[in-house]
Design a protein around this nucleic acid. Sequence first.
DNA 1: CTTGGCACTCTCGGCCCTCGAGTGCTAATA
DNA 2: TATTAGCACTCGAGGGCCGAGAGTGCCAAG
Lengths: 365, 365
Amino acid sequence: MALTERKKKILAAVVAEYIRTAEPVGSKTIAQTAGLGCSSATIRNELSELVSMGYLEQPHTSAGRVPTPQGYRIYVNELMQRQRLSLEETEAINASLNERLSQLDDIVSNAGALAASLTNYPAMAIAAPPPATIKRFDLIYIDANTFIIVAMMSNDTVRNKLVHLPVSVGQDMIQRLSSVFNANFTNITEERISPLTIRAAERAVDDTMGLTGVIASFAIEILSEAQAAETCVAGANRLLSQPEFRDPAKAHALMSYISDAEHIKNLPEVYDVDGEGIKVLIGPDNVAEELKDSSVVLASYDMGDDTRGLIGVVGPTRMDYSAVAAKLGLIARALSERLGGGSAPPKGLDNKLIIKEDTNGQHEQ
Amino acid sequence: MALTERKKKILAAVVAEYIRTAEPVGSKTIAQTAGLGCSSATIRNELSELVSMGYLEQPHTSAGRVPTPQGYRIYVNELMQRQRLSLEETEAINASLNERLSQLDDIVSNAGALAASLTNYPAMAIAAPPPATIKRFDLIYIDANTFIIVAMMSNDTVRNKLVHLPVSVGQDMIQRLSSVFNANFTNITEERISPLTIRAAERAVDDTMGLTGVIASFAIEILSEAQAAETCVAGANRLLSQPEFRDPAKAHALMSYISDAEHIKNLPEVYDVDGEGIKVLIGPDNVAEELKDSSVVLASYDMGDDTRGLIGVVGPTRMDYSAVAAKLGLIARALSERLGGGSAPPKGLDNKLIIKEDTNGQHEQ
DNA sequence: CTTGGCACTCTCGGCCCTCGAGTGCTAATA
DNA sequence: TATTAGCACTCGAGGGCCGAGAGTGCCAAG
């Protein structure tokens, strides 16, 4: 049986009210709020049909109705009115975006943190960059025992490493190493670097001190890092403000699950979000057992370099889909605008320097 | 009144048992477990004195005893036997350490994650590095529109930035910029870089395109970043496995507090942990209102370069202090061994290359 | 000083009851 | 045929009551 117009209105009202209050919704409430001119008895009849159609259910005989996952599905796909964010909200979001993204240190984790703070649900962000290669090596000679490897990558990031040597090395050797690596180790993928090619390079520069190996392993390391998906999870604690996680055991289970970036990285559903769209996974839609009682909303954005980034939010099935979708959509669009658009410089920056950078200093022995 | 030997034993038994079970401890339990040959009636007398001395309290008249913060204090300072970690545990910890720290990407967050997973409490890690300066600039000319800035810092990390120019620049200009910056902007702190000095440099190289400003702002940026304390919080969700956080409101409050690195960074108590010691802050010892019901255990370790790092753990006052102290101590010692010891290379590595590195690539427009 | 004994206190869990929200059904009505 | 008012029914939440059990404090005897 198809949904009559009135059934749709009633279903929408039930879902909206349940999202608001987290309590089963009764016929009387709907008669009052939904504003269709009929009595609660009529609504009751409709409700019980919606139950038998599988869109609603009753926790027990004398309780109100609660949406089923199918009910949410219909709501999300057809009934929900696209929430128009108020001007203030849009402003606020843009302000946060500007503030957070001015220091573009780590887009992934910033996008995640932003989504979490705007939606008040735990958020995650993923970026799986396209395979990168090294475009060019530079070896900077510091002193007889020290040099720096600088590698410029095909995606225009730069990586470096400081090498201290227990033995002395001449500037000429550094020179030779540099040209051999530029000749043989640029524009190739990780798997093309083999012990064989390394031995060959070693012989070519007459290296008896293992320098070739050091540079090669640095190359391997940054190549494999460059293709690893970056993930971040932010604001997991926000789960606790949701009444459905009043039970600490439940809360703990889900929080532990989503707090582990490995889990997120391995979610298959994450990898088929199409283009600009927003994807909503409701309860059992989720593949992971731990998420079967929760919902996930995902939005993708253009990171430039043919990369798409993904931001998402996790919450109870009783999630405020329309607000979340609106906010994620806004963030995704804003990010696409800022980062995307191929290699053309973003408007308004034409006469400024365009900079890609690599930062962060660490130690290693 | 001083604590008699027997009172000490009884107090220790109460605290230990309460830590184990999270339930008030009765006189009978102690008579049986503590193994001092006297009856529960005797213990009762002693217990009530311990109550009037302020080391124990009763939730209600007919319940067992629970330690007060002062009780924990005495326990931690005098009564607790230093837990000897079993061989397996030590092995396990060392194994994790080796695995996690082999990729020394980010010591701070790795140390935090490690402490959390070993103790099963939320953990935090902080490192406030000593002020660093730039030792040397290298500008790598890529093409007429592109160059890379490489800055080697006094703490032997290397930072870099890729600069795209909307105009063409000759290799000679890059050359000149490099020598001016090496002459005027090395070995100085951030505040010594002023608009004035930048203007001077600009004139010196005859720069009309703002290149000087770009390099100078990069210098400012990395100098200020280098002196910012790095912080990380890991495993906040572990709080939920503690019975004292069965109440979601409490759990949420504390989790939100500790999940925010800014809060952690600003904890004053964090900054006066002396040398090798382990510091235990019990309930009201904490300055932050949010931590008054919880305890914090802190251990510091030597990161080399005269820097001390800090790892800590947050939990209910009913924390297993002796296990936590033992584990944090072990981690701190292991880290000190690996990272510390001034600039002398760690033993066993003498004939290997010693490497300090800087990695991580990012974008900026 | 210690200890067995005993009365007392307080919490916890189970049980019962009432209250109220909400339903489903029926019969009357438009 | 669709709607509605009315009414009996169901079920859970909350409150009060009670008994069991754990633990205490005190007393008098060893």
